[in-house]
Amino acid sequence: MKHILFILVLFNLTCGHIHAQVRLFDAPRLPKDTLDYSRIRCLYEQSVLSDTLISHKQTKSIMYLQIGNEISKYMSFINFQTDSLISDDIRKGNNINLLEAIKNGRYQMGSDHILLFKNFPKYKNTVGNRIVYDSYIYEEDIVTPKWKIEKEQVTILGYSCTKATTRFCGRNYTVWFSPDIPVSEGPWKFTGLPGLILRVHDDKGEVTFECTQIQNVGWSDPILKSVSNPQTIKTTKKKFYDQLKKYCDNPSGFIENNTRVTSTAPKRILPKKMYNPIELFE
């Protein structure tokens, strides 16, 4: 146990509850867990300022966006792959030894744990995230940014893109979207433009998204419910961010008091973290 915690803290990642006797995963099964089929898949490089002290450290993640007819799913590509592996392992009845899998690198964890379903349930978003070891899930109303379209154009990945600006979730954003890809989609919670958003940056340079790949899906590619964890905590957006703030302000104290993980490892004082989620409240 000590060993596991050490690894988790070291990577600053969490991967679910780790009580061995609990049924760990509920793998999605077709077709019940298929929410939609993707038409376009994209990869984005997401970069968020995570520490101003260590020379403006940016946390970079490769994010994966599956765009279906009605629903889209946005999550870390590494987590997506891990999810697939876990689902596969569960389906095959393989004995899942998470510790081993992480240790030998079979299961990897991304640096951003967001799991975002847009328009699921209808007219709402479902957001999943984690703080340390705990998974949270909440629903929120879809908020479409109020876009201002500008004249400027650039070419990104061979697509002619138009500039648009907005103030959204506490930040001023400039995005570039391509009307040649007629889906009102984008990375993270960005939506509402007449074309796919391929580049996003805020005015402070703290948050950027850059599309690195667009794939045209010609086969049946399901958008699955993620590997669900029965211990996932249902919450609200506000409560989730309150928790996150608490964790960042005092990570050690938070782990001690709020998580359901009991650790036998010697207590270590973790330094305060910078609270800078993509979404800010005004």
């Binding site: 379209i149 004249k151 154009q153 138009t162 009307p179 007629p182 889906v183 009102s184 007449p194 074309g195």
Partner: peptide, 12 residues
């Protein structure tokens, strides 16, 4: 998606 553009396609 319905886009109304200037005739030179420069401006939405």
């Amino acid at each position: 998606v319905v886009i109304l553009k200037t005739t030179n396609d420069e401006e939405i």
